[in-house]
């Protein structure tokens, strides 16, 4: 079966996020007040061929741990759809 995986990679809490900070600073000038805690990450989608959902999830987590996220600065959330 073919499953679709969605991996959301984001910076760990406490790691500075210059992109998020820049976006946050730009918002008041556009009239958006009260928006805070902007964090920029990545969303990565891929298809996984696996016999069942649990196996697809296991493979997706392995791909994420090995390549998609750097645990020194990032954390990731894996969803299998």
């Amino acid at each position: 079966m073919k499953f679709e995986a969605l991996v959301e990679v984001r910076l760990r809490p406490g790691i500075s996020d210059p992109q998020g900070a820049t976006i946050e600073r730009a918002l008041p000038a556009l009239g958006f007040d009260g928006v805070s805690d902007v964090r920029v990450g990545k969303a990565i989608r891929f298809a996984v061929e696996a016999p069942d959902e649990a196996t697809a999830r296991e493979m997706s987590v392995a791909v994420t741990d090995r390549l998609l996220a750097n645990p020194v600065i990032e954390e990731a959330q894996v969803s299998v759809l």
Binding site: P18, Q19, A21, N70, V72, I73
Partner: peptide, 11 residues
């Protein structure tokens, strides 16, 4: 080597 290299703080 330990650590990582992030985007510059001033972007």
């Amino acid at each position: 080597l330990p650590g990582a290299l992030q985007k510059n703080s001033g972007l």
